[in-house]
Design a protein around this nucleic acid. Structure first.
Lengths: 205, 205
DNA sequence: ATAACATTGTTATTTGCATAACAGGTAGAA
DNA sequence: TTCTACCTGTTATGCAAATAACAATGTTAT
């Protein structure tokens, strides 16, 4: 399928979670305005997104929740799943691991890396922590395709290059240092401090 | 001054950090292409942003780093500073507190809240943790205007409403449940799981 | 002196995305 | 039946932001 807009992909992820929640509570069909309300967006936005993935509802009942969940899974997931590594086992890295622990999704965190010897060779929520110099080895062995980068800022560039050399396909960079990636590596950067400063700016006066 | 575009505000935050870093290493002037390189954006973008805040460089030396830092501070900061609360002292909340601990900026985290009795009345990195039912009281007493929301998903809505009732001006919501705010409250939402799923989507094939 | 160059500041164009408008269709009521 | 109400799906418009194009200006080299 043709690549979808990034924002649509983000919403699909959110739709799915909302739908799973509704489905668990026994609901079988949902209207665009109901789904929209859960995400605080407009019904038109919902219908437009679903149009893009070619899913079509029924006029009187809206969308079949189970079908739609499956449809989104076809778009977002891969058959065999994707493996993820957390690089930097600080508070942020642990937050990620905790969230995914025990959830059986197609995304699984299978390794963590840290420079601190106290953390190396421990297991956090089922995820083993390796020494950072083993990145290439473990990524290859475990077939990891995605890395979450939560290391201290001055290590960012080196670690990022190591990840790229190791054949990673996607990086989620939470450090405040922007990184460079080749065209075939997808990069998403998010800076918590910047977000807070943005909120502060718009919250004043 | 007229409100700036959100994206420009975000970049101003990043410019400032890069500039502070350059200034510390002894640099006094910087060209748009140098600043651009640090953030991995284009020089045009830099100049356009600086045009919007009305700062003008010199033709041969580029921008005066110190002056520019001060100029950005006028835009982003307030005279007396803004106080921030972290609601939910989990891994994510601690990550935020740690980052700001000891940094003397105009944004200071002055309170944390948590429902867990083991955490209440402890101090993390200099930030006292209060029971969640004291939100209104502490926000008023400490004149807190910004809240970072990192509570478990099912508590999100109630806590958000409590914050709004208490007169908060900006909320940074990291839970996966979207919230509703009145017009005069600025809301920024970020969902780490969605971001990871987005990276996974674009990283496949 | 003047041409070539490097850099800033501004205007114009393009792009991606959200919003709005509307066309189509089915169930139920009158 | 026929009308109304209420959905969905699609096309059209508007908006914000990024990119591109270009005008202005001072510096250096010839």
């Amino acid at each position: 399928m043709k690549k979808l807009p990034g924002k649509t992909v983000e919403r699909l992820s959110k739709y799915r979670r909302a739908l799973l929640y509704s489905f668990k509570s026994g609901k079988e069909h949902i209207f665009s305005h109901e789904l929209a309300e859960l995400l605080h967006i407009t019904p038109v936005q919902v219908r437009r997104d679903l149009m893009l993935i070619g899913y079509t509802g029924t006029l009187r009942k809206g969308y079949d929740i189970k079908e739609l969940i499956d449809r989104i899974a076809i778009i977002l997931d891969t058959e065999i799943g994707q493996k993820v590594a957390v690089v930097g086992l600080g508070n942020l890295g642990r937050a990620f691991i905790r969230y995914f622990a025990g959830k059986r999704t197609k995304l699984s965190i299978v390794a963590a890396f840290d420079a601190n010897p106290d953390k190396v060779d421990t297991v956090y929520e089922g995820v083993p922590c390796y020494e950072v110099n083993r990145i290439a080895e473990i990524i290859l062995r475990e077939q990891i395709s995605i890395a979450i980068l939560t290391v201290p800022v001055n290590e960012t560039t080196d670690i990022a290059n190591e990840l790229i050399k190791s054949g990673i396909k996607g990086i989620l960079n939470y450090t405040s240092r922007s990184i460079n990636v080749p065209q075939d590596v997808f990069l998403e950067e998010y800076d918590m401090v910047t977000s807070l400063e943005k909120v502060a700016y718009f919250a004043k006066q």
